[in-house]
Design a protein around this nucleic acid. Sequence first.
DNA 1: CAAATCAATTGATATATGTCAACCCGTCGG
DNA 2: CCGACGGGTTGACATATATCAATTGATTTG
Lengths: 232, 232
Amino acid sequence: MPDSEYRDIRKLDLFAQMADDNFTSLMRGAYVQNFPAQIELITEGEPSDFLHIVISGSVDLFSTWNGRETSMATVRPISTFILAATIKDAPYLMSARTLEKSRIALIPSQDVRAIFDADSNFARAIVTELAQCYRSVIKAQKDLKLRTSLERLANYLLRQQRHAGGGAAFELDFEKRRLASVLGMTPENLSRAFKGLQPYGVSVTGTRITIDSQADLERFARPNPLIDDFST
Amino acid sequence: MPDSEYRDIRKLDLFAQMADDNFTSLMRGAYVQNFPAQIELITEGEPSDFLHIVISGSVDLFSTWNGRETSMATVRPISTFILAATIKDAPYLMSARTLEKSRIALIPSQDVRAIFDADSNFARAIVTELAQCYRSVIKAQKDLKLRTSLERLANYLLRQQRHAGGGAAFELDFEKRRLASVLGMTPENLSRAFKGLQPYGVSVTGTRITIDSQADLERFARPNPLIDDFST
DNA sequence: CAAATCAATTGATATATGTCAACCCGTCGG
DNA sequence: CCGACGGGTTGACATATATCAATTGATTTG
């Protein structure tokens, strides 16, 4: 692993405070691999052998049941995924596939659990991380249960806009079909939902979104920090 | 606080392994109160001043947005709620109200965070608890996104049946209107969904459910441990 | 006991969302 | 250049779900 990557991983909240030799020992057991696009990294139901870290590229977390499939989240650099399964030594609840060419570090779950037992700074960081993840999923669930698909899209656009810097125009960072799945709708419906937001000043050209009338869209979307603010 | 309650709380996974004096010190700062039914214990958006423990009775966790409301979960004795907000010192994402006369212990969040920093056994227990909570919400989200309301009801009945001991007949432990909200549908639709399960051998009298043909219902519901098994 | 509630149910209807088929329009490879 | 392919869009239609209004039945309350 190149030194720059090593340092980038070290800087993650999860690893920043742990003892040097514990971090070194975690990294010694780690693999780093480059994967092409559309590779299934893990499959739900399998034992959680590795904690994964996305170093570059992006990874889709998805689940299936009875022939249906839904996107649960997208992981972008630099962050970990499947932490809860690793800690609990329980089967993965989600599958993961690369969306593009991606570089992934794999840390044996056994090592993570061992260091977790030995390093209380690491344990504390894991708590914070898990609490954050938990709250994110609760927000996602509120989004799903309390809003219509049009409202979910409107609020997604506002979040994405803020994430992109706040300007009136910005790019979607998803393929539309995956965005549809993340938002819990079909691609056809997403298409119609974009049209349904035109009266509120939203225009779409490919993956480029323009919000002509911020106030109108916000009046319709009614964004709420307890659902839409990822930082708290 | 009576000794029996003190010991029951001590036995919770969350507190079982921590040092004696740390537990004692946590409990010294705790309040225990009896609340009547339908009291709002906490309101979403407020700072998380206390970790709550349900000693008896039951508590509904719910959220609201734009005039709508949805039940997120029900907490039954003996367990804690609002752990993630306490740990992160962040606002509550859900409100809580008593469903019936309930006895609740309140531990100042500040104390929980202080002991969390001092007692690594406690910190580890929190990690396990949070990982468990996280995985439960992921399962709930898969349930919501991958299944129709009829399928959610069918699988809920199978879970509840198992929870009640596995016999063909058992009681719902919810008011139907709350069950509807938990399952993400309207009470009217729940009524119709029960009728929709009759062909699979489900009959309902008040809160009593009878499953005449286990195999038929399971063939329809297709329960899956990665969604329906709460223990993993 | 009678009136008042309230949860549950039912039917009629409206709305939201999914499905299917067709088409458009870029991109890629022969 | 052409054709195949895949994502995206559109329209027609089917299904799922919500809403509204009315009724029932059980429970509470004066």
